[in-house]
Design a protein around this nucleic acid. Structure first.
Lengths: 225, 225, 225, 225
DNA sequence: TATGAATGAGTATTCATTCAT
DNA sequence: GATGAATGAATACTCATTCAT
């Protein structure tokens, strides 16, 4: 973690794989890059963000340690690349999910509960990697920056989707209400999935109930004068 | 050599300071216990849950390393004790806050926004230590257990407070609505304070706004048929 | 934290160098393996089986500490490897000695005193390392096992050599007499050389005398009806 | 062990309890001295000469650590005292055994086998503590000195006992033959009991057989011209 | 005398990173 | 480009000994 190694001049705050890895690769090199990323991802999921050795990655991914350093400046950057990949994949899923859901809905009362449900599913499926991202972001600015970017992208997508039903939203600032709703939905789902915190089901409060009530709350709020 | 390794009796999964530390101390011993806990807490806040050395604690707290081991079985247990202390203190603050707030409020419309505001303040003030607790809980069962207990205590206190205005809550299951409200309030505040995740203000979304809208949302929900 | 402690696969109870060291090495790796074994052996002889530091080995053998752990799972295994080497070398010397002595002897009366003398010499020369082996064996099963094996090999070789003159051995169980003689010879020589006990010449009883009398005693015994 | 702590000027080479302990004690002090010696002895037998803590002694013996340092200059001296006590007790047993055996025997052929048998029994019973003595003596001159003294006392007692039958001993130097016999008997018994070396029965060679053959060998030797 | 809390030097082991081949 | 053996700094934990009470 950066806290320990204050040594070398670090790269800029960017995080996409091509930013963190040394060179865009092709062919068999690309395959080996994939293998080391996959091995690292597995290990991170099994043991936690940093509780694995490059030796481990080397063995599991069938890649030499030298190869890893050929692609990544440091172990930290390898971890960041895994997280960057994951965040990208999740963003894509969110987009897909919204693209599929929106056209099916005809009213706010139709949309909101289904949105909560669908978003919860996307987050649930990606919870392990999301958890890693958020844990790491807590202590690594090079991850918290891009993580924030991903969060804002998600927020604007979600808000936009609700704004498709803007005439059903009461009050004079529907935009704000939509954005607030998004934040509250995300926060609630994230916490329930324990992103960023405890490993297991933290709360005994029933997951199914909460999703339903969360939808109701948002609807009540968006419709209320 | 095998002859040397005699298995140590491990402690139970409990976490209160007196459970994690070796002996209840008094007088100057107590003072030294305080110093090592304070030093550890400072270091944990500065660098993260584990990115400090017992050497560091020894120097900053003016305690010998041996003394630390006189009170704590391991560095891990020292960390746990710091967290246990913090959770206890926060619980106390929550209780105090509610005890002060409740009698001042005459209606749900009066209570909910002020509750959100006050709770937000309690969490904001304790955010750094809460963050440490939640991060640690993610990988240490000896912390996640008690952390969960603290969360449930808080949930029941919050719900109970709202139930003081139960006749203003519409619908046939006011209890569920109150509990859902608590969860959503906590999740939103926690996320905004980045408990369990990023170090700094994660979201550019305005803090003041969100608190207000959160209150409104809950009110709308609780009142809605 | 539990997440970190993954149990290491332990090796079997075997002891030969290639069993205790991690990999068969060649070339310059072999040279560095030799240097660390030599350094460890010197230090063990100077200070005792365990009263040396890996730091010491690193400096004296001009090997990095990491390299030691590349070859040996632990300091204990390094010590075991030194002992295994020594036991192998001694076994070889015993075999050589017997192979040289036996053909020169024409009778039991010729053989026994010369055997005592020659065996005493082999043991004397290897006394320091033998002492280390036996001391270590007292508390380390991974050494006592192979040590026992070495002892039995030696016993059978010695017995066999005496049995070359079986027709000079009186009584109806020459095998037993030969084996008993071997045990008594070894025990006496070992004790005199203080294998397994005191550092210096323990006994003031004259070494030269005892060897002679030991030979006479065995002869008298083997020949007696 | 002395090898490590070259620090303080040590006492003379003497070892009797009153030499190693600080002061001759009486009354309840004596009782506490006994308790710490007993506790130390137990721990040494359970774990080995040095693999115990003064903390352990303090708890098991119900003596404060300060008390131990009131009686003994160091942990090493406590260990030495335990060994000194043991050697004294064994010497006494040897004397008793000889005093009981000698008058019962009328000839060398009567005496020798019974002596081997009885001596083996004395050694067998005291094997654990004798083992500790010899192990410690290997690296601690303050023990090896007195250990040697004990050995010589035993040698002269044993020799003397055999010399009671001097007219049955052939040859012109019965004294030497008796002394040689003693050494060989002791060495063989000691090795078989693994004094000074491996923990368990080292040899598969049958204990009962060896004792008988050892007696026969000595007899044959003593009687042979 | 007696106590036992405090001290802190000493050491095995891990693992990210380098670089000779 | 690839390799993986070598490096060595970094750190938790133990326990004999002291000394204030």
């Amino acid at each position: 973690m950066p806290a320990k190694t204050a040594a070398k001049p670090k790269k800029s705050a960017s995080l996409a794989v091509e930013d963190v890895s040394r060179k865009p690769q092709q062919g068999r090199s690309k395959a080996s890059l994939e293998r080391m990323l996959a091995a690292a991802r597995e290990l991170m999921l099994e043991r936690g963000n940093e509780d694995f050795t490059l030796q481990d990655v080397s063995q599991r991914g069938n890649v030499s340690i030298g190869s890893i350093y050929l692609r990544f400046e440091s172990k930290d950057n390898l971890v960041r690349a895994v997280i960057a990949d994951a965040l990208d994949a999740i963003s894509a899923e969110e987009t897909t999910m919204l693209a599929a859901l929106t056209p099916q809905c005809t009213s706010l009362g139709d949309f909101v509960p289904r949105y909560v449900e669908s978003y919860a599913e996307v987050l649930r499926i990606n919870a392990p990697l999301l958890r890693l991202s958020m844990q790491r972001a807590a202590s690594d600015p090079l991850v918290s920056g891009p993580g924030k970017a991903h969060a804002m992208r998600a927020a604007s997508q979600g808000t936009e989707a609700m704004m498709a039903f803007r005439d059903e939203i009461a009050g004079d600032d529907p935009e704000r209400k939509a954005l607030s709703s998004y934040h509250i939905i995300f926060a609630t789902l994230a916490r329930q999935l324990s992103l960023g915190s405890t490993g297991e089901s933290v709360h005994d409060y029933d997951w199914r109930d909460l999703k339903r009530e969360l939808g109701r709350m948002c609807l009540a709020y968006l419709r209320a004068a």
